[in-house]
Structure formats: structure tokens, C-alpha cells
Design a protein around this nucleic acid. Structure first.
Lengths: 358, 358
DNA sequence: CTGAAAGCGCTAACAA
DNA sequence: TTGTTAGCGCTTTCAG
């Protein structure tokens, strides 16, 4: 004996579902066929008669019917949603303010769409342990983690738990998870060699070398110096650039080094621009007195004055690589970590006159 | 007579659903209770006995069980996903490269999460007519449209079709939809008045005044001039700033105006920075020879040299406003369009010496 | 206090 | 060719 177990559909306070959209049942009733016939017809099944198909198609169009993707996905066990996690920390908004990351996210979004996936944008506090929930509740078929810092242990656990995961950035010693990133070390090495080739004798490094990517860039910088028989001097490394504007003590103390640096390699373009501006404020010319080089090649680097020499990350390729690694894992195949090649873009900020160079 | 209508679960090529996660049925079996008891127990229903609840809770924890949100949502008719649409055009990547938009999207993401919503990031080609699909297929309970240009007609149609929609930006004449944006006109007016107060006589405007927001900013600029009894000279308006770096003809032709402009108001910070850099390249000092003011107050504006005077958009409040407007519509209430107040941030790029000003 | 049953909106075997 | 039936994983009446 049938009961009436309708959900308490009292007011319109139903948590988000709005005005009754048409459903297959409606089409079926109006067309005088069964729901399954409608389903088959709309998907273009060959087993449905032409005139029936036409009638149903027209009815659907006139009612502006669209199949409910969530119901379909539940039934078919399909999940084409990927969660892209962006770090969120109130203290250090650096990563979010950096245009580089917008390009990165855009690139991932494009690649996902190309593969028929949707992108769920999630924000996570640092060391958020509940990233797995995105996967375990069935909301996402996989997770992409972006940002400069990274909860190493959490990532390992996620992968061990079988969560398809790709993290943006540099590979780390004991990682079980898959990373996709630029070859920071090689890029930084090329940049530093370039500065030396322009005649620089004292190349300083500005940027955090404790974050995974920063560490790699610092390593590349070190190795370039060593290749040329130069020592790495701790006094030529500036860790942090304060967010506030006025204070230039970080820069002046760098310049007060025994032998004043004649080139500065910054770990990202945003920092490089601050370096260049700071130098000019202190009355030094770029590149004549001090050459400057950045990393990322954000759009602004080209229009900056002077044009910023930098290491380009091939953002456009990142999305494809990330999605490839992700779909491999979703299909049960292992995914290899990847380092994308970088490209040195030489602009005015590092060019010395031929006469002086060498 | 029961058949075996199992989906063709042949290989693991099931379109995204991975390794069998535990389900309520599993817990129920292990606990020796029915599925409905598990459901009630996990949601903390008072009608379930304490020891039963405990047993179930522990079992769930040990199996690392999490309810399938998609199934739950289908059953309860809940949809807590909002699609945020970001424009995508290969030709003009300006809006995506602009850090301002990353802040905007982040702000919306935060506000959505605070209200228990998820954010689906979607990209749309210009004049994409199929935005409605996001709503009509049940994927999203509402849509937020960001970006500087805007398909006016499409938005009107969406709203008429009952799609909860909020678009970022300036209100337009015959809009049926809801917009949330800054008071561009007032902000631009304040900025222009400030430049005039600093002693400027010829204020130029750089930026596209055909986009909705640009038009408002241009209107504010105009009205400030008129308030001071000055004429708006078309020769003092530069529409486009080329993406490529070298070419400064747009700037020099502006400066070749009969009376050379002594202040430039740019329609966004990114453009303002290019203006300032261009001026310096042409041998002019900022602000001594030409004062410069931008719009947005992106983070970089403060550390720019010279510090960029600009009109701050209260990004942090935008998210809350957008979500409020959206939830109102989802609940069936009408949502009013909103213009958020802006704030003039005066920095070095517009400051004249007292002696010369006035 | 617990379980049986109905059903969210759709798909897909199988029967007719 | 079309309809019947079972069920995706969960929630929620209502009967016991």
C-alpha cells in the first residue's frame, strides 16, 4: 500500500532547488511514451523510431528541457569534476596576488574543459587535512593542489589513500604524490649564468629559499656560481621582501655587502620589479649599475620599465600536463612527476653594454 | 523476478568513479542494522539509541566512511553549487592577466564558502549563449558573471528565464539582471578632482570607455572636469594601450596635445603603471611633470615606484554582496543592484609640491 | 527505537 | 520499436 513520503516541500525554502523545471516524466507524458523511451530518444539511440524521436526532441526543445546532469551522473556513476585547491592564508596573500597564479589556474581550467571536466575551485587553509573530503564525499574525481608552499605529509597521505592528486610545484625528496612544475633549478641556473655573462661579478639572490620552488631556484643560482668558480655568499641572499612599500632596508643592506652586488636574481617577477624599483629609488640605474632578472614572465614583465629579463614558465602547457597526470591516476595508471622546460627571456633589465661586458 | 541489470562494469573505465569506497549499506551490514538506521545515526537523529549510534559512528570512522554528497543532494533536492563564469578570449587576455580579478574571484570564493556553497569555475567565450545550461542541467543553483565586457542581451534573457544571476560591474540602461560593482563614476570623479586639486590643468584619460566600467569611469572624469568649468577634450583621451611593450606612440601623441597634459587618469592600475613607466621612458618625471592616478588599488600599486595614487575597490566586500544578491534570488526574492563605495588612496604618483599646487 | 518502503531524476537491461 | 523494471546512494515517512 503506497504511502505519501513526499519530502516536506512546504515553502520554497528547499535549500537551492528552484522553480520546477521540466523533467523527463513531463516529456514522456506529453509525448504519450514512457520515460525510458524519452531517455533513449534524447541520447539518439538507434532503437527509437524516427518519428518518435523527432516528436520527443521537439517537445524537449519547446519545453526548454535539459537532462539533469547530477541525476545522470549518479545513475551512471560518472564524475567529471576536479577540485582545484588554492591556498588561503590571511597573513601572506602573496600567492594570490601574483598574476602568475591566475594564469596557471586559467590554464588548468582550459585543459580540464578540453577533457570534458569541470573545475571546482576550493580554498584551503595551510595544512588543511580535510582535502580528502573533496574526494571521499564523491564531489570530485581528483584534486589539483596549487600554491607555493605545500603540506608535504598531507599530500603523501592523500596519495596513499588512493586520491588522484597532482600538485603544482617542485618535486621533493620523499614524495609519493605526483608533481608537475617547471624546471626551476635549470631556469635559475640559466638566468644566473646569463647575468654572469653580462659581466656581473657579484650576483645576489632575493627570495624565500625555504619554499619548495624557491629552494630549487636558489640551488640553480648556486650551481651557476659554482660552475664559474665563484663562492656563494650568504650575505648576498635576502630572504624576505616586506609587503609594505617604504622600507628599503632589505635592499640597502644587501647593497652594503663588502663587494656591492652588480646583479640581482629575484625568485619571481613581482619581487624582481620591487627590486628594480627599489634600486632606482636608491639612485642606482638598472641595468647599468645593477642588472636584474626575475622568474615567471608574467605579462607585466614585458611592459615594465626597463623590460624585465626573466625565466618564462610555460603556463599554457601546464594545464595539459596536470590534466594528463590526473586522468592517468583516475584510470588507475600511475602518473609520473614532470618538470617542464623553462625559457630565458632576455630584456633590457639585464643588458650590459658590450664594451663593459666580458 | 529479479534480473541482473548491473551497469556494464567491465574494466575500470567507468568514467571517473574509482576504487569502491564504503557505502551506507556496508556499514549497515557490519553493524547489523538497516541502512536507514545508519543514515539517521550519522546525522545524529535523537530517535536512535545511544549505543547503536556509537557503534555506527565508530564503524564509519574506522572504515573512513563519508556520505556521498551527490547522492544526498539528489535525494534532498539540494544544490549548493554556484558557477562563477570568467570570460575567455584569446585575443584580449587583459582581464585574466589583471591581478584585480584574482582578488575578486578569491573574495567571491570566500563568501560562497562562508554560506556553505561551492564554486564551480567556468570559462565562457564572449557572447556564449549557453550559460543557461549550467543552471538548467542542475549543475549550479546560480551564476556569477565576472569580467569587464558583458553580453547584455544574454544576461537579460537569463534573468527572464529565471536563472539566479549576478553580474559583476556597472549597471546598464535596460538591464533586467542584477549587478554588483563599485561606484566607478564617483571613484573616477574623486580621482580627477584630486588631480585638479594638485594643480593639474590638463587631465588626460587613458582607457577603454566603451566597456561598461570604463564608460562609467570616463563619465566620472568628465563630470569632475565640468564641475571645475573645464572642457572635455577628445584629444586628451587615449582608448587603447598596445599590449606589446616598445611602442609608446599612444603616449607621445597624447603628450603632443596643444596643451600638454600635466596629469593622467588611467582606467585601471595596470594601465596607470604603463603610463607612469612610459612617461619616465620619455624623460618626464612622475609626478613632477605629469601626475598619474589609477583605479583598483591592486597590491602592487603600493610598492610601485612612485607609489601609485588610485581608487580602491573594496574587493573584500564584493564577495559578500554578490552572494547576498544571489541567495536572495535563489530564495525567490528579488535582488537589488548595488554600487559599492570606493576610496581614494593618495600616494606619491600624484603629489605636487605645495608651493606649486593651487 | 528500528526497519520497510518509496523515491530524488535518470539509465539500461530485458521483456514484450 | 517501446515499455517494464530495477536501481545509482542516499533520506524520510510511517508502521511495528
Amino acid at each position: 500500500m503506497p504511502r505519501i513520503p513526499l519530502p516536506s516541500s512546504s515553502a520554497s525554502d528547499d535549500g537551492g532547488e528552484r522553480s520546477a523545471r521540466p523533467q523527463m516524466a513531463d516529456i514522456a507524458r506529453l509525448a504519450g511514451v514512457s520515460v525510458s523511451t524519452v531517455s533513449l530518444a534524447l541520447r539518439g539511440s538507434p532503437s527509437i523510431g524516427e518519428q518518435t524521436r523527432q516528436r520527443i526532441a521537439e517537445l524537449a526543445r519547446s519545453l526548454n528541457y535539459r537532462v539533469n546532469v547530477r541525476a545522470r551522473n549518479l545513475r551512471t556513476g560518472t564524475n567529471r569534476t576536479i577540485a582545484v585547491v588554492v591556498p588561503y592564508s590571511r597573513s601572506d596573500r602573496h600567492h594570490l596576488a601574483d598574476p602568475f597564479y591566475l594564469g596557471l589556474i586559467g590554464s588548468i581550467a582550459d585543459a580540464l574543459v578540453n577533457d570534458g571536466y569541470q573545475m571546482l575551485l576550493a580554498r584551503a587553509e595551510e595544512h588543511d587535512e580535510d582535502l580528502a573530503a573533496l574526494y571521499e564525499t564523491g564531489q570530485a574525481a581528483g584534486i589539483v593542489l596549487t600554491g607555493a608552499s605545500r603540506p608535504h605529509e598531507v599530500c603523501n597521505q592523500l596519495t596513499m589513500a588512493g586520491v588522484p592528486l597532482v600538485v603544482w610545484g617542485a618535486p621533493m625528496p620523499r614524495q609519493l604524490y605526483c608533481t608537475v612544475g617547471s624546471d626551476n633549478r635549470d631556469g635559475a641556473r640559466a638566468a644566473t649564468l646569463h647575468l654572469l655573462d653580462q659581466g656581473a661579478r657579484q650576483v645576489a639572490f632575493v627570495g624565500d629559499n625555504e619554499l619548495p620552488e624557491g629552494a630549487e631556484r636558489y640551488a640553480g643560482y648556486q650551481s651557476a656560481l659554482q660552475e664559474r668558480g665563484l663562492k656563494v655568499e650568504p650575505g648576498l641572499h635576502c630572504m624576505q621582501v616586506p609587503q609594505g612599500s617604504k622600507d628599503l632596508s632589505w635592499l640597502s643592506s644587501l647593497l652594503e655587502h663588502a663587494e656591492r652586488p652588480d646583479a640581482i636574481f629575484a625568485s619571481c617577477d613581482l619581487i624582481a620589479m620591487r627590486v628594480a624599483q627599489g634600486l632606482q629609488q636608491l639612485g642606482l640605474r638598472v641595468p647599468t649599475d645593477v642588472a636584474v632578472c626575475g622568474f615567471d614572465d608574467i605579462q607585466m614583465a614585458a611592459s615594465f620599465e626597463p623590460g624585465l629579463t626573466t625565466v618564462r614558465q610555460r603556463t599554457a602547457d601546464v594545464g595539459a600536463a596536470v590534466v594528463a597526470a590526473l586522468t592517468a591516476q583516475i584510470a588507475g595508471r600511475p602518473a609520473q612527476s614532470l618538470q617542464l622546460a623553462t625559457e630565458l627571456i632576455v630584456r633590457a633589465s639585464s643588458k650590459r653594454k658590450r664594451s663593459r661586458a666580458r
